[in-house]
Design a binder for these strands. Structure first.
Length: 385
DNA sequence: CAGTTGGTTGATTTTCGGCT
DNA sequence: AGCCGAAAATCAACCAACTG
């Protein structure tokens, strides 16, 4: 209820703002420019359309996507990306370019819609709406928070409704797979480090708004070309990225790029989707020395009542690297399940010794926790005698 | 029996990073 | 006035085993 009221107020605020904008700004002296856009088709007074065949990054791939519901293949997808006049999702920014990429199995086609001036926004949005197929799944990078959001706002302001889209946002799986190695998981960074793509003459995203404003003032179209290319490149990268993620999930050993993905997360992702192949990836990664994978695998086993499998992992982790996690699990196991208190005591004391040199406050709470456990265990031993 | 303790699981919050 | 989802962190509810 409260929310609805806020929304209402916000809308009124926005309407007022839009009105005052059109009153105060000089009435678009530049609209007399007839933009020269070679290769672009005029679809309306202000809207242009461009269609482009690209080298198909998905050609010959019949693999199904692990990130999508069963039975969806790449042909049911639309890769999309927008260019806007700014970053904030507030009312002040508009979308002036949207690119849609599709594959029919053989070709990869990118279609772009360009808005050449503010007054054409309504027309532009209506054309977009007409060309959105709600049967498809829309693949983006951070589109859930950015692109579809800003589009929804713009549609709303024009009294239109942006259709509900089934979406796949590649930012989230990308973060899980590469955050620990790469730090930044911006599309450009992933593109460079994971996909190994280098761009020529690329514009920086942050320069895009100014380039568009410059075009609005002067009507010069050349500086826009790199923006169009940038948008198209982003869409192609989306397709390549999806393929790369699927490849990793399909066969974790197939490491093509120099940066390795976090296989513990890959396995977890599959398990979360109910795909038991995830455990294979975890086991393999664990054998290769990734204890994060061992941790997740053992948690999985433990939950499903397979203590044997969990123990096998804990023992290795404890023996080889004095894993804190494994030690605690083993201590719990020996105390509560097996009731071999001496064994539990041995683990805890070893652990205490091992972590003695560390004195940070974090470790202190750990230490007191361990001491607590030790005390309890000793009491139990005494009680037994 | 009531009351305590350790452990687990699920709900709730907080924080953070991408987009132009 | 920007927003969304994830992961992490914190809280709460519950169970099982025990104790006096």
């Amino acid at each position: 209820m409260e929310e609805r009221k806020q929304l209402f107020n916000r809308l009124n605020f926005l309407r007022a703002r839009e009105l005052s904008r059109s009153e105060h700004l000089p009435p678009h002296t530049h609209t007399e420019h007839k933009p020269e856009l070679r290769g672009w088709e005029k679809m309306g007074e202000y809207t242009f359309y461009h269609r482009c065949l690209e080298q198909n990054p998905l050609s010959g791939i019949d693999k199904k996507s692990f990130l999508l519901p069963d039975g969806t293949d790449y042909e049911g997808l639309v890769f999309f990306d927008t260019e806007t006049t700014g970053l904030s999702g507030g009312a002040g920014n508009i979308v002036f370019l949207i690119g849609l990429g599709k594959t029919d199995g053989e070709h990869f086609i990118v279609e772009q819609y360009f808005l050449s001036d503010f007054p054409g926004e309504g027309e532009f949005l209506r054309i977009i709406e007409k060309n959105i197929d709600t049967e498809k799944i829309y693949v983006s990078y951070n589109g859930r928070s950015f692109d579809t959001n800003i589009l929804t706002t713009r549609f709303l302001l024009k009294g239109l409704r942006f259709p509900y889209l089934a979406q796949l946002d590649l930012l989230y799986p990308a973060r899980r797979l590469w955050k620990d190695v790469l730090g930044s998981c911006s599309l450009s960074n992933i593109e460079e480090k994971v996909l190994g793509i280098e761009r020529e003459n690329d514009v920086l995203s942050r320069e895009v708004p100014d380039i568009y404003f410059h075009f609005l003032r002067t009507g010069e179209t050349e500086p826009l070309i790199p923006v169009f290319n940038h948008n198209r490149r982003d869409i192609l990268s989306l397709a390549e990225l999806l393929l790369r993620i699927d490849t990793i999930l399909f066969d974790a050993m197939e490491e093509v790029s120099s940066v390795s993905a976090n296989l513990a997360e890959a396995g977890k992702m599959l398990l979360q989707q109910g795909n038991t192949a995830g455990i294979e990836i975890l086991e393999r990664a664990f054998r290769a020395g990734d204890f994060r994978a061992g941790k997740f695998a053992s948690i999985y086993y433990k939950r499903r009542g397979n203590l044997e499998a969990a123990l096998r992992i804990w023992n290795i982790m404890w023996r080889e690297r004095k894993s804190l996690f494994a030690a605690q699990e083993l201590a719990k196991y020996y105390e509560h399940k097996k009731r071999e208190y001496e064994k539990a005591i041995e683990i805890v004391t070893t652990l205490l010794n091992y972590y003695k040199p560390l004195v940070s406050s974090k470790r202190d709470s750990l230490k007191s926790e361990l001491l607590h456990r030790l005390n309890r265990l000793r009491k139990k031993v005494i009680a037994l005698k």
